[in-house]
Amino acid sequence: MTRPVDSGVILLARLALAVLFLWGGVMKLLGYAGFVGYLQSKGVPFVQIAAPIATAVEVLGGLFLVIGFKIRPLGLFLAAYTIATAVLGHDFWNITDATLQRDMIIHFWKNVGIAGGFLLLFVTGAGRISIDGARSPRGGLGSSL
């Protein structure tokens, strides 16, 4: 048995995470050449493949978070994606400038925290206020994988 407020809180969590991904994805689209250059500067392999995939993951992932579609598998996938972007994009251990290193440390651990939020969505599911919730036969908090 779930409390009615649970689905509202889960919706707010999904929307908060979606803002990050939608904003990031749209900014990548608007500044695509700069994003590709950034990935190249970080030594990301296969940039011509990685850049469009990362952009699509952020835009589509953000949209799926908003509508609450396939949240359990999406939560697990986006947790892994967020950790991968932390390691590749916020590699503070390679920074010698103290100010920039501090900034990268904050961003790295921010990504770890965001991944934790995605893991919670993996456990809870999308809640009733979602496509997953509407499709759930029992109308519970989440949906099955």
Score class of each variant (00 low, 15 high):
residue 43 G to T: 04
residue 99 T to Q: 11
residue 123 V to K: 15
residue 62 G to R: 04
residue 48 Q to M: 12
residue 39 L to M: 15
residue 132 D to R: 08
residue 92 F to I: 08
residue 1 M to F: 03
residue 77 F to H: 02
residue 60 L to Q: 07
residue 1 M to K: 12
residue 59 V to E: 12
residue 143 S to I: 02
residue 113 G to T: 09
residue 66 V to R: 02
residue 139 G to P: 07
residue 96 T to E: 14
residue 1 M to L: 06
residue 5 V to D: 01
residue 20 L to Y: 06
residue 4 P to S: 15
residue 120 L to R: 04
residue 45 P to L: 09
residue 26 V to C: 01
residue 55 T to E: 08
residue 48 Q to T: 15
residue 127 G to C: 11
residue 14 R to D: 14
residue 116 G to P: 15
residue 128 R to F: 03
residue 116 G to H: 05
residue 121 L to C: 05
residue 136 S to L: 02
residue 79 A to P: 09
residue 74 L to G: 03
residue 140 G to I: 12
residue 100 L to Y: 07
residue 48 Q to R: 09
residue 134 A to L: 03
residue 33 A to L: 07
residue 85 T to C: 00
residue 69 F to I: 03
residue 132 D to T: 10
residue 49 I to A: 15
residue 41 S to Q: 02
residue 17 L to G: 10
residue 79 A to D: 07
residue 81 Y to T: 07
residue 99 T to N: 06
residue 9 V to F: 05
residue 17 L to D: 04
residue 113 G to Y: 04
residue 55 T to C: 14
residue 106 I to E: 06
residue 44 V to W: 01
residue 36 V to W: 00
residue 90 H to V: 00
residue 90 H to D: 01
residue 26 V to T: 11
residue 52 P to W: 07
residue 124 T to R: 13
residue 145 L to D: 10
residue 28 K to E: 04
residue 69 F to V: 05
residue 44 V to K: 01
residue 16 A to V: 12
residue 81 Y to G: 00
residue 97 D to S: 05
residue 2 T to V: 13
residue 83 I to S: 00
residue 87 V to Q: 03
residue 11 L to D: 04
residue 21 F to P: 13
residue 127 G to I: 06
residue 120 L to K: 02
residue 105 I to W: 10
residue 14 R to K: 08
residue 44 V to S: 02
residue 86 A to M: 10
residue 35 F to D: 05
residue 44 V to G: 00
residue 44 V to M: 07
